[in-house]
Computed example of a mutant assay.
Amino acid sequence: MMAESPIRLQLRTERRDEEFAKEDQPIGDFTFNAKVADVFDDMVSRSVPYYEEMQRMVCELAQDFAVPNTNLYDIGCSTATTLLTLDRMINPNVTFIGIDNAPDMLEKAAQKIEHADARRPIDLKVVDLHQGLHMENASVVTMLLTLQFIRPLFRERVMKMIFSGLNDQGCLLLVEKLTSEDTAFNRLFI
């Protein structure tokens, strides 16, 4: 019998996402609040095609670029799934910094980190990317499905700030949804 992948173990939650199945729920803007944070791992693993595979590939690539005595940033770290997976794969002398703009998501991330027995401290920071971002000494930056939540007007500035914080030979591992002019292709990936 094959062992369950570490990423799948990370994504398993006690509570299945049924937040948006309620019929009497008022319609409003989606927010990463405490209710969403509580079921986020289940929500994202079921709603993003190939999410587990995406996590696996990003973590394998990060291994090739992470350098001891540098920083690894996860921008839009949500509940720390990527950071916790990387924790077992990356040299313990790499400092991990998780950035998110949703305090409830970071609270859930802190709980997961505490229960996961991480090999290193993981610094979690509330940052509104629209207000700016300071990074330094980065050998790896991951940004998974985050750019879409940054207003288009600010995206170029955020990317320049990331670039300015990257060391020579550092990398940005960016995963994002995209659309195509081919509607059949869009339907396949949506």
Rank of each mutant, 00 (worst) to 15 (best):
L174H: 05
M135A: 04
L106W: 06
R88H: 13
E23N: 03
L153M: 13
L11N: 04
L72D: 07
A116C: 03
M135S: 03
G28E: 13
C171L: 07
L61R: 08
E156V: 10
G76F: 01
M105P: 01
R12M: 14
E4P: 04
H130V: 04
M2T: 13
R157W: 11
Q55C: 14
E53P: 04
E52N: 10
L173C: 08
Q169H: 15
A3D: 09
M143K: 06
K160F: 05
Q10M: 13
R157I: 10
P68R: 10
L166G: 02
E60M: 08
M161C: 12
N93D: 13
K112E: 03
S78T: 01
L153G: 05
N101C: 04
F189Q: 12
E14C: 06
A110H: 02
K160N: 14
K177S: 07
L133M: 13
L124K: 01
F96E: 06
L144S: 07
Q131R: 12
S45V: 11
K108E: 11
R56C: 02
P26G: 08
N33I: 04
A37K: 01
S164N: 15
R56G: 03
M135Y: 03
V127T: 14
L83H: 09
M43Q: 09
M105A: 00
R120N: 08
T81Y: 06
A3I: 04
L86W: 02
E52R: 06
T183I: 14
E19G: 13
L166E: 07
E181C: 09
K160P: 00
D168P: 10
L124V: 07
D64V: 13
R151D: 14
D38T: 03
M89G: 10
G76L: 07
P152A: 09
D24G: 12
T70I: 08
F189V: 09
V140K: 00
A109W: 01
L173G: 08
E107H: 09
E53N: 12
I7V: 15
Y51Q: 11
C77F: 00
L11V: 03
N137F: 06
A37D: 01
L106E: 08
F189T: 09
V127G: 07
L166C: 01
I75Y: 05
A3V: 10
T82S: 05
A3H: 05
P103I: 01
M89H: 12
I150R: 09
I150A: 00
A102F: 00
N69R: 13
D117N: 15
D24R: 07
F65Q: 07
A3K: 12
T79D: 01
T179Y: 14
L61C: 10
A184S: 12
I190E: 15
E23Q: 00
P26V: 04
I162Y: 10
P49W: 00
A80W: 00
R12Q: 14
D168N: 11
R187E: 15
V58A: 15
T31W: 08
M143D: 00
H130M: 12
R151N: 14
L173Y: 01
I90F: 04
D87R: 03
E176M: 14
P49E: 00
L188K: 12
R155C: 02
D117V: 05
D41A: 01
F20L: 05
I113R: 00
E114I: 03
L172K: 06
I97Q: 05
L173F: 08
A21N: 11
M105E: 01
P121H: 02
S47M: 06
L86Q: 07
M2H: 12
E107W: 01
E156Q: 15
T85Y: 06
D117I: 03
G98N: 04
T179K: 15
V127L: 10
Q131I: 02
